[in-house]
Simulated scan of single mutants.
Amino acid sequence: MRHHNYSSPDGFILLGFSDHPELEMVLSGIVTVFYLITLIGNTAVILVSLLYPQLHTPMYFFLRNLSFLDLCFTTSIIPQMLVNLWGQDKAISYVGCAIQLYGYMWFGSVECLLLAVMSYDRFTAVCKPLHYLVIMNPQICLQMVSAAWGISLANSVVLCTMTLKLPRCGNHILDHFLCELPALVKIACIDTTAIEMTVFALGIIIILIPLSFILISYALIAKAVIRMKSAVGRKKAINTCGSHLTVVSIFYGTIIYMYMQPGNSASKDQGKFLTLFYTIITPSLNPIIYTLRNKDMKGAMKKLVKGDKGSLEIGGH
C-alpha cells in the first residue's frame, strides 16, 4: 500500500469489517433490508401527512421533517457503506470522505435538535391545549425547524473542517466503514486534545442541552397527565408522547454512548456496531414507531394503501 504525505487528496481506505469477511455479506444483506424499510417507511410518512389535510398539524409537520431528515441521513451513508461491504475495493476519495463526514455530522445534529423541538410541541399540546394552535403557528414551526438545520450546519462546518485539517502524516487507513469524526481524529499524527475538547463542548450544546430540554418537557407533561381527571385524556396524552419518547430513547442512548466518552475507551468493533445501529436501525424504526402508535397515521396509511383519498376520521390530537 502506497503511503502519501498528508496533504495528498488521494483519499482513504475504509477497513470496515474486512477482518470478518463472512460478516460482511451478512451485514450487507441486513443493511439493504433496513435501508429499504427506511426509504419506504419515511416516504410513506411524508406522502400521507401531505396528502391528508387533516394531518396538516404542527405535530405532523415535525414528523415530516424527521422523515425527510432520516432519508437524507441514511442516503448520505448507506450506498457508500454497501459498496464497502460488497467488494474488495475499500477506497473512498478525499472529496467523497469529506462530503460524507459533513453530511453525517449535519444530519445527525439536526436530529438531536429536531427531537427537542418535537418535545416542545408535545408539551404545548398536552399542557396548553387551548392555546396550542396559537403558540405552534406555522411561522413558529418553520422558524424552529430552520433554526435546527442552521445551528447543525454551523456545528458540522466547524467540527468537520477542524478534523479534515488535522495532519495525518500518511495515515489514510480508517478503521471504520464510513468517514466518521472519531475515526478521522484517531489517525491524526498530532496531539488531538484540542479537537477532542471542541467535540465534547459542541457535543454538550448539540446533544445534552436538547436532551435536558426534552427531559424537562416530559417532566412537565407527566405532571399534567397525573393531574388529568379523565382516563381518556390521560391515555391520549400518553399515546401522543409515547412514540416520541421511544424514538428519543433509542437515538440519544446510542449517540451519548458514542460521542460522550473519551476517544479510545470503546472497543473498535463496538463503535462500528453502534454506528451501524443508529445510522440504519433508528431511521427505519421511526416511521414504524410513529405509525403503529398513532391512530390517525394508521388510518391514513390504510387509506393510502387502498388508494382512497377521501375524508379521514381524525380522533383528535
Results as ranks from 00 to 15, higher is better:
130 L>K: 13
130 L>I: 04
132 Y>W: 02
133 L>H: 12
134 V>K: 12
134 V>P: 00
134 V>W: 11
136 M>G: 00
137 N>C: 12
138 P>Y: 13
139 Q>T: 08
139 Q>D: 05
139 Q>W: 09
139 Q>H: 11
140 I>E: 03
140 I>Y: 06
141 C>F: 01
141 C>N: 14
142 L>H: 04
143 Q>K: 11
143 Q>Y: 09
146 S>V: 13
146 S>R: 08
147 A>C: 05
147 A>Q: 06
148 A>P: 02
151 I>M: 08
151 I>N: 03
151 I>T: 08
151 I>V: 12
151 I>P: 00
152 S>H: 05
152 S>Y: 09
153 L>G: 09
153 L>Y: 09
153 L>A: 14
154 A>D: 03
155 N>A: 09
155 N>Q: 07
156 S>M: 10
156 S>N: 03
158 V>N: 05
158 V>Y: 13
159 L>W: 13
159 L>D: 10
160 C>S: 07
160 C>P: 01
160 C>K: 06
161 T>R: 05
161 T>D: 07
161 T>Q: 10
162 M>H: 07
163 T>E: 07
164 L>M: 15
165 K>T: 12
165 K>M: 15
166 L>Q: 13
167 P>C: 15
168 R>P: 05
168 R>E: 13
170 G>K: 11
170 G>Y: 14
171 N>M: 10
172 H>C: 07
172 H>F: 09
172 H>N: 10
173 I>Q: 08
173 I>D: 10
173 I>M: 10
173 I>E: 13
174 L>Y: 03
174 L>G: 04
174 L>W: 11
174 L>Q: 00
177 F>Q: 04
177 F>G: 04
179 C>V: 06
180 E>S: 09
180 E>G: 06
180 E>H: 07
181 L>D: 02
181 L>K: 07
182 P>Q: 13
182 P>I: 04
184 L>D: 03
184 L>I: 12
184 L>R: 06
184 L>A: 06
185 V>T: 14
187 I>F: 02
187 I>W: 04
187 I>C: 03
187 I>R: 04
189 C>N: 02
191 D>Y: 14
192 T>R: 05
193 T>A: 12
194 A>P: 02
195 I>R: 08
195 I>M: 06
196 E>N: 08
196 E>C: 05
196 E>P: 01
196 E>W: 14
197 M>I: 14
197 M>L: 12
197 M>P: 00
198 T>R: 10
198 T>L: 11
198 T>V: 14
199 V>P: 01
200 F>A: 14
201 A>I: 15
201 A>K: 02
202 L>W: 10
202 L>N: 12
203 G>S: 03
204 I>V: 09
204 I>P: 00
204 I>T: 11
205 I>E: 00
205 I>A: 07
206 I>W: 01
207 I>P: 00
207 I>T: 09
208 L>W: 06
208 L>H: 08
208 L>E: 06
209 I>D: 04
209 I>A: 02
210 P>S: 06
210 P>H: 06
210 P>L: 01
211 L>N: 05
211 L>F: 10
212 S>L: 13
212 S>A: 08
214 I>A: 09
215 L>D: 06
216 I>M: 14
218 Y>R: 05
218 Y>I: 00
218 Y>E: 00
221 I>P: 01
225 V>H: 07
225 V>S: 11
225 V>D: 02
227 R>L: 07
227 R>M: 08
228 M>W: 10
229 K>R: 13
230 S>F: 04
230 S>P: 00
230 S>D: 09
231 A>F: 07
231 A>I: 09
231 A>E: 15
232 V>H: 10
232 V>A: 14
232 V>E: 01
